[in-house]
């Protein structure tokens, strides 16, 4: 049963990712990418990483993709104004990424022998456990992430100003 859920989610995410890349209209690309993100959230739930699933939906589907949609609507981009690369470019891009896929899959052809620990903790992805780790071992990176957000906020406001006077 779990395997079927995994396979369904995987197929949907691959198809929507391909449609995202191939669709001419950028708004459709954003919507397909949101679908891909929802299937990835399903994978996180399957992995019992509940905190990650919720954060993924809130941050990606809720914040980042809405930002992308807003920018697309502001710039009024549509299928007609969409610049296209020539077919030769598309073919060479397909060959290059296909070769990357073949190389990576070939490198892992023998399978991965993972040493699954005996005393495993099924609740590793729950908020309780992750919160403890985040606020004990990873306090300094957490605070640095706060500073990064402040810098990104100031930078985005500065870059977006129309007539900048310093």
């Amino acid at each position: 049963m779990t395997l079927y859920i995994f396979l369904t989610l995987a197929v949907i995410s691959l198809i929507t990712a391909l449609l995202m890349v191939l669709s001419r209209n950028p708004v459709h690309s954003v919507l397909f990418l949101i679908l891909t993100f929802f299937t990835l959230a399903g994978q996180y739930i399957l992995l019992n990483a509940q905190f990650l699933a919720v954060v993924h939906i809130i941050v990606y589907a809720g914040a980042i993709m809405v930002l992308f949609l807003f920018v697309l609507m502001l710039l009024n981009l549509s299928r007609d104004t969409e610049p296209q690369k020539s077919n030769l470019w598309k073919l060479s891009g397909a060959i290059a990424s296909g070769l990357l896929l073949v190389t990576l899959v070939g490198a892992m052809r023998g399978g991965i022998a993972l040493q699954i620990p005996e005393a495993e903790n099924p609740g590793v992805g729950l908020v309780e456990n992750l919160g403890k780790v985040l606020f004990t071992d990873f306090v300094v990176p957490f605070e640095i992430a706060g500073i990064l957000f402040l810098a990104a906020m100031v930078g985005a406001v500065l870059v977006g100003k129309r007539d900048l006077k310093i």
């Binding site: 992750l130 780790v133 985040l134 071992d137």
Partner: peptide, 10 residues
């Protein structure tokens, strides 16, 4: 998840 190690999720 497979290795029961929270650091990856952090």
């Amino acid at each position: 998840t497979y290795l029961s190690d929270a650091q990856g999720q952090i």
